[in-house]
């Protein structure tokens, strides 16, 4: 009789070369239950991350250590399902938030914006650690920081509207990235020099996969800080900045 159920796979030795789900055996010709449940669990974590919410109170309390007031805003996307289907609404502030920002117009260098994006869990877990590494770098060269903004149901481009309204020279948004099966807590950082509403990706620079097991806080801060210094010295950001930034390809 042919052996049809395999408990192990002779390819297991190859697993050291890739994180891909190779050598997972088979039950008949199907994926064995154990592997199938592992996959399901990873997907469940990713789904939970997409539907997670910013821990606003906890974040505001933790952000106090940086001695910067915190402003709490909301995009025009009213709820998660709408956020997922209408990226245009996630790029704009709602009416109340626009009003709230009217009192902030003292010129500053950098506006730091924190948004849930596609994983609020990433922000809840990793943003304070990242800021602890990053803010001292800004202070070391006397960048004037605007009040920190926390925005719910936000997309990347909302940072440009916020920073422009606040009269900041540069916007830096720290936003939860789309969760993968292997990581659900990555932060992406996007910066725009002379931000204004309507700019698109070619005006921005991005540092992604920021999390302790990816690009760690210290490495990420170093990259972000380098990009921001370059942006200020060359008075631009985006494609043109990236092309000349040799340090990024180290």
């Amino acid at each position: 009789m042919k052996k049809v159920i395999k408990s192990s796979d002779p390819l297991i030795a190859l697993q050291e070369f890739t994180a891909a789900r190779i050598a997972i055996g088979r039950a008949g010709t199907s994926i064995p239950l154990k592997q199938s449940l592992e996959f399901k669990l990873a997907h469940a974590h990713a789904r939970d991350a997409v539907y997670s919410s910013l821990n606003v109170d906890g974040l505001i309390a933790d952000l106090k250590q940086f001695d910067l007031p915190v402003i709490h805003l909301h995009s025009q996307a009213g709820y998660r399902e709408q956020y997922l289907q209408r990226p245009d609404l996630g790029r704009k502030l709602d009416e109340k938030s626009v009003e709230q920002l009217k009192e902030y117009h003292q010129p500053t260098d950098i506006s730091i914006i924190i948004a849930d994006g596609l994983s609020a869990a990433a922000i809840n877990t990793n943003v304070i650690g990242l800021l602890k590494a990053l803010i001292p770098l800004f202070q070391s060269v006397d960048f004037k920081l605007a009040d920190i903004v926390l925005v719910e149901e936000g997309r990347v481009a909302i940072a440009d509207e916020i920073a422009a309204a606040m009269n900041a020279k540069l916007s830096l948004i720290l936003i939860g990235e789309r969760p993968g099966l292997s990581s659900t807590d990555s932060i992406g950082a996007y910066l725009t020099y002379q931000p204004k509403p309507g700019l698109t990706d070619e005006s921005r620079n991005c540092v992604s996969n920021i999390r302790p097991d990816g690009l760690n806080y210290k490495q990420a801060s170093k990259k972000i800080f380098y990009l921001i210094q370059e942006a200020f010295s060359r008075k631009l950001s985006g494609v043109a900045l990236k092309d000349n930034a040799g340090l990024l390809h180290e």
Binding site: R21, I24, R26, T29, S30, I31, R178, S182
Partner: peptide, 20 residues
Amino acid sequence: PGSDDIMLNYQSTSFHDALY
């Protein structure tokens, strides 16, 4: 492999799916 594209970060069909 196992439906999980670790480069493009999305889920597609596995080798096993085609066998099914």
